[in-house]
Amino acid sequence: MNHFAVFFKKELKESVKTYKLLLLGIVFLILGIMNPLVAKLTPDLLASFLPEGMSITIPEPSSLDSWAQFFKNIQQMGLIVVLLVFSGVLTNELSRGTLVLLLTKGLPRQTVILAKYAAMLVLWTMSVAISHVVTWVYTVYLFPDNLSQNLFFATFCLWFFGALLLAVLLLGGTLVSSSYGSLLVTGGLVVLLNLLNLFSALKEYNPLALATKNMDVVSGAVAVSELYPQIGITVALILATLGLTVLLFRRKLV
């Protein structure tokens, strides 16, 4: 436990010193502001592109549009930035050789993996929280309706999906020892999940739903309990991925 605390602290400090914290904080803050703004401005923008004299009826935007923007942006831009920022978190240490000195001082190998994962989760949680809170504040300000429900749960699902990808990123780093390689492994998983979605039999257990069904949860089309199987599967996948990563990392030459 003591080793974990020491190395976890080092990881957090590293996040600050290598600008990871700043980068994620600001990007997710900007995303948070943009979501309601884009929702509000879209009808005006559409109207201004219409030829003179033509008019169509565009429905008044609501809080649902704002949250739709939120989930779309976090799922695309947000996750991509997080994965990019963390792509070298293990592989840079391996390629530079900074871990050797600490490992020979008695730092257990599983601690390296677990502390790194914990630090990544902290930053990912912070990022999602910033974006969620900012979006929520502005949405309430612009669209004071009561159309959106289960917001916390919907965001939690997306967060869970991100947590899975981060675990896979570490596995990728252990497998291929390069930051591009670990991104490729993670991207490969997303492609695989999308392919699996083509089989309707598996759909119900596909973790991908945690990143795609969010708006259905917010609009009430999908009940919260319908996503429980996917959450269970994702927890199992995260634990399995971490376990495999630790096993592989123990055998890895440094």
């Binding site: 700043l22 980068l23 600001i26 803050l29 502001i33």
Partner: peptide
């Protein structure tokens, strides 16, 4: 919206 947006982008 614009003020925090611009501040955030400038900081970055």
């Amino acid at each position: 919206f614009l003020v925090p947006l611009i501040i955030a982008q400038l900081t970055l």
